[in-house]
């Protein structure tokens, strides 16, 4: 599956998420992940949307999103020019014989133990979605019993920012280095 990552700045107003989600269902666009959070400007939220490029015309997604009145800016982030991260919390059953091995795996993926019980541990991992998939494969044989992922967020590498060419970018949005 070829995925595309769209960074979308939207007005932080009621119903905006419903508008965006509604657009995806109405136009039969397939998304694999969507995450939303505030930005440095309280009036603006940022969505990161991962689109399945095999089944969905990404150019249409981009243009249709642009048409939503509450959408301020849409940018596609190329994987090689972006830093992509996802947070996962993973509850794993602990077999006493394999405990050391499990912790080794966690260490090598820089996953930290955030909860420890006699039978289970909860790992917190922050990495690219691909690396996260690799970690999950490793953990599977230990018995992953619960998994929660945030969906990917991404930011461009280098000095450019998403608000660079926005005419009406509120000043608060400019990042202070």
């Amino acid at each position: 599956m070829r995925t595309h990552t769209l960074s979308v700045l939207v007005e932080n107003k009621p119903g905006v998420l419903a508008h965006v989600a509604g657009l995806f269902s109405r136009r039969a666009f397939n998304i694999t992940a969507l995450s939303v959070g505030p930005t440095s400007d309280p009036k603006v939220s940022r969505m990161t949307i991962v689109v399945d490029g095999d089944s969905t015309p990404v150019d249409q997604v981009h243009k249709q999103l642009e048409k939503l009145v509450r959408v301020l800016k849409v940018t596609e982030l190329e994987p090689e020019e972006a830093i992509e991260r996802e947070l996962a919390l993973i509850k794993v059953r602990v077999n006493p014989d394999l405990r050391a091995e499990l912790l080794d795996v966690a260490t090598s993926f820089r996953a930290s133990v955030v909860d420890l019980n006699p039978d289970t541990i909860v790992l917190e991992a922050v990495c690219s979605p691909g690396r996260l998939d690799a970690l999950l494969t490793q953990l599977a044989r230990h018995g992953t019993c619960e998994l929660v992922r945030t969906g990917m967020i991404a930011i461009s590498r280098g000095g450019e920012t998403i608000t660079d060419d926005m005419d009406s970018a509120p000043p608060e949005l400019a990042l202070t280095h």
Binding site: P14, G15, A18, L23, S25, R26
Partner: peptide, 13 residues
């Protein structure tokens, strides 16, 4: 507003 979101250019409560 939820019902008409897919069939309006824009709506607002």
């Amino acid at each position: 507003t939820g019902i008409t979101s897919p069939v309006t250019k824009h709506n607002e409560l």
